[in-house]
Design a protein around this nucleic acid. Structure first.
Lengths: 111, 111
DNA sequence: CTCTTTAATCGTATATTTGCGATATAAGAT
DNA sequence: ATCTTATATCGCAAATATACGATTAAAGAG
C-alpha cells in the first residue's frame, strides 16, 4: 500500500504540483525572496540570513533548482544562484489557465 | 534534531507556503479542476473521476478545506464542495507581491 | 425501526521531507 | 604542498504525507 499515484494524473497537474511543492516550504520562499532582492545572485549569504544549517540551505537550493525555479553556476570557490523568472511566469500562467478563466464562467459559488 | 522550523520564518512566507502545499499534489489540483468545471459543487463524483479510494479523496478535500481553498457544506447525506475564489486570488496576489514586482527592478539575471 | 447510501474518521503501512553533523570537493591564499 | 573558505553530498533521525481498508456517523427510503 501507499504506493504513490502521482503518475496517474495528467501532465499539467503533475507539473503544477511540482512547482507548488517547490514553494511549499517557508525556507524556500525566503530563499527566493532574498534572491529576488539582491540582484547579484547570492550563495552563502542566504545561510547567514536563514535560521538553518548550511547543509539544509544547500538542500533547499537543490530542490528549487530541480524544480527549475532557480539556476546556479559555480563561481570559483562559491556558488551563484538566481531566480529563473521565466519559470515563475509559467507557474502563474498555468495556475490561471487552469482555474481563473473558468472562474469567469461561474462566479456564483453555491456553498 | 529534525524539529521543523517553519515557525521561525515570516508570516507571509508561512502563509504562502501553506497555500503552495495545498497545491503540491496532482490529486488536489485535479480536484480543484473538477470543482472549477462543474458549477454545482460536487462531492462523491470526484471519487468516481479520480484513481483514488474514497477515504483518500476525503483526506485531500480536508486539506484543501484547511488551506481555505475550498469550502464545503453538508447537504443531506452528501457533502457539497466548491472553490473559494477569493483565497485563490489572494494566493496569486501574494506571489506577485513577493516576486513579480521585484522582477521589474532587476530583469537582467546574472546566471 | 432497519436498510442503504454517502462521506468522514481511525488505524496502519509505507514513502517522502526536513534537518543536522560529518565528510568530501574544489578553488584561492600562503 | 598545506591551509582556509565555500558548497555539496552522505548518512541518519524524526516528522509528515500518502494511501487504503475498516469503521463510524448521519440522513433519506422502505
Amino acid at each position: 500500500m501507499a504506493i504513490h499515484k502521482k503518475e496517474e494524473f495528467g501532465k499539467k497537474e503533475q507539473e503544477l504540483a511540482e512547482f507548488a511543492k517547490a514553494l511549499s516550504h517557508p525556507a524556500r520562499i525566503a530563499i527566493l525572496k532574498v534572491l529576488a532582492q539582491k540582484n547579484e545572485c547570492i550563495c552563502g549569504e542566504i545561510v547567514d540570513v536563514l535560521p538553518l544549517a548550511q547543509s539544509t540551505v544547500s538542500q533547499h537550493l537543490k530542490e528549487l533548482k530541480n524544480a527549475g525555479l532557480v539556476s546556479g553556476t559555480v563561481d570559483g570557490p562559491r556558488s551563484c544562484y538566481c531566480i529563473n523568472w521565466k519559470a515563475f511566469e509559467k507557474f502563474t500562467t498555468d495556475i490561471n489557465s487552469l482555474f481563473t478563466n473558468l472562474k469567469a464562467k461561474n462566479e456564483k459559488a453555491c456553498c
